[in-house]
């Protein structure tokens, strides 16, 4: 489903180029992307999710080469295919929980799906928070809403960047369970980038990221 090949990326003004290892992930094969902090996990995740555009190589997702899409195509691609979760929830504070979820479909250009929002919140045990303000939620609840938002558009791939590193053991376990459950329910493949050792036992597939830095001539 995801196939990464010969990827390289150079940050503006950087003196080295990052080269990433090749790998493939099959559909439904939830995977963990492990590596040191600052080792390029976020960069790779953003390259796959189309937040960054790789300058070389090929990233195939459902048969589409992400690296070759135009800026406008990339926006649409993100909206339709990718769900993103971050270490912080990054919810829009001025909106309610429900509006945050509906915003996801709106920005992706999909028809509004209030029933789906309710359905997902029920699965996450947050049905009573539907019309709450985001600022009234606890950290754990807010992170669950962020997960709900990521699956709103039924993405093919959910990319999670350190989703549990700000949570305690109990919440960590809860969040990752919900994440796996929701990914399965929406037929999405989950790729989690983390250095959190607690997650290792929950994933069968683990990709060890060893990016190499090539100095510029």
């Amino acid at each position: 489903m995801v196939s990464v090949k010969d990827i390289q990326y150079t940050y503006p003004k950087a003196t080295t180029t990052m080269r990433f290892p090749d790998f493939d992930i099959k559909a439904g094969e939830h995977s963990l992307l492990l590596g040191e902090s600052g080792g390029g996990k976020t960069t790779l995740l953003h390259l796959i999710g189309g937040l960054l555009q790789s300058q070389q190589g090929k990233i195939e997702l459902d048969g589409v080469n992400v690296a070759a899409l135009s800026a406008v195509q990339l926006d649409q691609f993100r909206g339709k295919k990718i769900g993103l979760i971050f270490q912080k929830n990054h919810l829009i504070n001025t909106l309610t929980v429900k509006q945050n979820l509906l915003a996801a479909t709106y920005f992706a250009g999909n028809p509004a799906a209030p029933e789906r929002a309710v359905e997902i919140l029920e699965e996450l045990g947050l049905a009573d928070k539907l019309n709450s303000k985001v600022t009234e939620l606890s950290v754990g609840q807010a992170q669950r809403v962020a997960i709900a938002r990521a699956v709103m558009n039924k993405p093919a791939l959910i990319l999670a960047d350190e989703p549990t590193s700000a949570l305690d053991d109990k919440n960590c376990d809860k969040v990752i369970s919900l994440l796996l459950k929701l990914a399965n329910h929406s037929w999405a493949t989950l790729l989690v980038a983390t250095h959190d050792q607690r997650l290792k036992e929950r994933f069968n597939r683990q990709i060890e990221l060893k990016s190499t830095q090539i100095p510029h001539p």
């Binding site: 937040l51 926006d75 504070n93 558009n153």
Partner: peptide, 16 residues
């Protein structure tokens, strides 16, 4: 800043 970035990540175009 984060709101804007998250909107873009959810598929909003620059023009939006």
């Amino acid at each position: 800043k984060y709101d804007l970035a998250i909107m873009r990540s959810m598929g909003a175009s620059r023009f939006k």
